[in-house]
Amino acid sequence: MHSLEQTLYWMQTVITHPLGVAEGIASTAARRVIDIDPANAEEVVTRSETLSAVQRMEIYSHAYYARLLDCLREEFPALRYSLGEELFDEFAVGYLQDYPSASYTLFELGSRFPRYLRETRPPRAESTVGSSQSADWADFLIDLAEWELVFNQVFDGPGLESKSAFQVNQLLQLTPVQLVETRLFVSPALRLLRFKFPVSRYFSAFRRQEMPELPEPEQSLIAISRRRFKVKTLELTPAAYEILYALIQGQTIGDAIAAAAPYTDLHAASFGDELRTWFHQWAELGFFEFALIPD
């Protein structure tokens, strides 16, 4: 006689197995709890008048995976649009088989989907015409999946809503020496992303129901964060990207600006004007939490 705890754990292991109920019963994890094979499943679950024990459990297994599939469709709507319903579902089912849900929360369900797409992409020579180094359709899909994943993580993750907004005017009151030695601590919601395609623009067009076409390859540098419970995105120049990257790494403002200098051809005065514009904009978008100002 099996205990209720054993039976529940066994059923969970069997029903959630990515290859199906019979494979779940025969799995090592299930046999550690109740050591039977699929032919003897009725020792644990009784059959009905019309269905065997395995068939009864398959109903729950199908419902479980149908729910997970619905969640992935909701989490990656632009990717689903790009691939089409049928092809998206094929990728999603393959993903759930290779990366079964292992968390108590559905928030983590799609966290490895971009990795799965990278691992299963066709060889570049087969998926693109021309240079073997050029970006192709598979690269676009991977970029788009990464973008939607990060967008959802920023939307649901920690932010600064409970704290006072950082005021960039604090920096204007500093001496030049203090300013270059100041460190800016960024919002926990801030992410920097580098893509081969303009997926942020594509995603925005999709949300406006403009039915966007596959874009041409184009390096895209994006900052994404959240302010007042709204996700904010900003396309960056290479110099702006380098500054924010250095600040995220904990470097001083002076070191961050120095790191960006090779990425701009503006003379000092024009670059200074651009820096002021950027820092005001970044503060408005909630990129910064507070400043550590030296004495």
Rank of each mutant, 00 (worst) to 15 (best):
S111Q: 07
F113R: 03
V54P: 06
C71L: 10
P123I: 09
E146T: 15
A66M: 06
T50P: 01
S162C: 13
P114I: 01
L69V: 13
F113M: 01
Q97K: 12
G157D: 06
L69S: 14
S127V: 07
G94S: 08
G110Q: 02
S48C: 08
A165S: 14
Y65K: 05
R115T: 09
A78N: 06
D156V: 04
S164R: 14
S52Q: 04
R112H: 10
E161N: 12
E126Y: 13
D156I: 03
T120C: 05
D156P: 01
R121I: 05
L87T: 14
E49R: 15
T46Y: 06
R47G: 07
E126T: 15
L96G: 05
E146A: 12
L144F: 08
Q173S: 15
Y64G: 11
V168T: 12
D98L: 06
Y99S: 06
E146C: 10
R73S: 08
A138L: 09
G84F: 00
Y65D: 02
G157E: 05
A63N: 12
L83F: 01
Y104E: 03
R124K: 15
S127R: 14
W147K: 09
L171H: 04
W147N: 12
E146W: 02
A135Q: 12
A145W: 00
E86A: 15
F88Y: 08
P176T: 05
A92L: 00
A125Y: 10
F151Q: 11
E75F: 03
W137G: 07
V168N: 08
F151P: 02
E108V: 07
S164T: 14
G110L: 00
P77L: 02
F113V: 03
S101C: 11
A78L: 07
F91R: 04
A53K: 03
R67G: 08
R56F: 01
F107M: 08
Q167V: 11
F88Q: 03
Y64M: 06
L160N: 09
E119Q: 15
A66N: 14
S164Q: 14
S48D: 04
D139W: 01
D139M: 04
G130A: 08
S48L: 06
E126P: 07
P77E: 02
A102K: 11
S131K: 15
S164L: 09
E74T: 12
Y65N: 02
A66K: 11
L172G: 13
R121F: 03
A138R: 11
T175H: 05
Q170A: 09
Q173P: 06
S103P: 05
T50H: 13
S101D: 03
R56Q: 05
A66G: 14
G157W: 04
G130T: 07
P114W: 00
S103R: 08
N169A: 12
A92M: 00
E42C: 11
E108F: 07
